[in-house]
């Protein structure tokens, strides 16, 4: 394969990481917690689309929308039931709860769908695009990138131009001060979980389409990689998550292609460690301002 196609596949993988990393980073920024169940929401999204399309024979569009709706609701429900009662608890308590939620979702999927991998329905008919003899582009990679770019633009506009977006920025900086402005902090946190989870559903779709198979643990590894991406970019920072995700995907794919498949994950984590040694706040993370 040519360098260009390796790069494009890396960008496509990175787009997927970026979509997931956005959920981690937004929730961290606003609720100041690591939602380790976020990766499993991807899996729930993929299984919902699988059930809707393969079992219930719904159209691709309806199956995708169903996956997004289920994940959005799931995100909001997880926050309400598992995390909201712990708003004042120690970060460790919240972290352990998040890990519990993650196991819960995995076990639930195991119970319903069994441990065998399921073949993900091909919701679209992808024809590879042949540019010339050496350069054949996979159209699903192009779609993944295109949709991710659209989502990022929309999200950036939403956060910077709408009142709800501003409220999110305010809450992420100072919950108490945001409340004094009349911002409903609980509602803002719910909206953040909803957005993050709907993006995870989209990532679940791309994951299913790219790899063709899904299982109860499908979300675990991309979840961890996306978390790494969020930290790489600077946890809590939205452009950072986008950059971190894309960088990670490219590094992973190029390592696989030119160094070694087995070592690619090690290289990814080595990059993280080096970046954090040089810049502990991540690539785009801001220094926390000292309170006067």
């Amino acid at each position: 394969m040519s360098f260009i196609s390796n790069l494009i596949n890396g960008l496509s993988l990175g787009s997927m990481y970026a979509l997931i990393a956005l959920g981690y980073t937004m929730v961290y920024g606003i609720a100041k917690m690591l939602n380790f169940a976020h990766g499993d929401v991807i899996m729930v999204g993929a299984f919902t689309m699988f059930t809707a399309a393969a079992t219930l024979k719904f159209s691709p569009a309806i199956s995708i929308i169903a996956g997004i709706i289920v994940c959005t609701l799931l995100g909001v429900i997880i926050e309400k039931i598992a995390y909201k009662p712990l708003r004042k608890a120690s970060p460790l308590t919240v972290l352990i709860t998040a890990i519990g939620v993650s196991y819960f979702l995995q076990s639930l999927a195991l119970l319903i769908f069994g441990s065998n991998q399921k073949s993900f329905p091909m919701l679209f008919n992808f024809e590879p695009i042949r540019v010339n003899e050496d350069l054949i582009l996979k159209s699903d990679s192009l779609m993944t990138m295109g949709v991710t770019i659209l989502i990022m633009v929309a999200l950036t506009l939403f956060i910077n131009k709408t009142k709800t977006g501003r409220a999110m920025l305010a809450v992420s900086e100072d919950k108490g001060a945001a409340e004094l402005m009349g911002v409903n902090v609980n509602k803002t946190i719910s909206i953040t979980f909803a957005i993050g989870s709907s993006l995870a559903a989209v990532a679940g779709l791309f994951f299913g389409l790219t790899y063709g198979f899904i299982g109860p643990y499908t979300g675990a590894m991309p979840g961890i990689k996306a978390f790494v991406a969020a930290v790489l970019g600077g946890i809590g920072n939205i452009p950072g998550a986008m950059l971190g995700g894309i960088l990670l995907g490219v590094i992973e794919n190029l390592s696989k292609a030119y160094i070694s498949t087995e070592l690619s994950d090690a290289i990814v984590f080595a990059v993280l460690i080096i970046v954090l040694l040089v810049k502990p706040t991540g690539l785009m993370g801001k220094k926390i301002n000292e309170k006067v």
């Binding site: 501003r166 305010a170 900086e173 100072d174 004094l180 301002n289 006067v292």
Partner: peptide, 8 residues
């Protein structure tokens, strides 16, 4: 302590 939104 004023608590303005420093990054905005």
């Amino acid at each position: 302590g004023r608590r303005i939104f420093q990054q905005l």
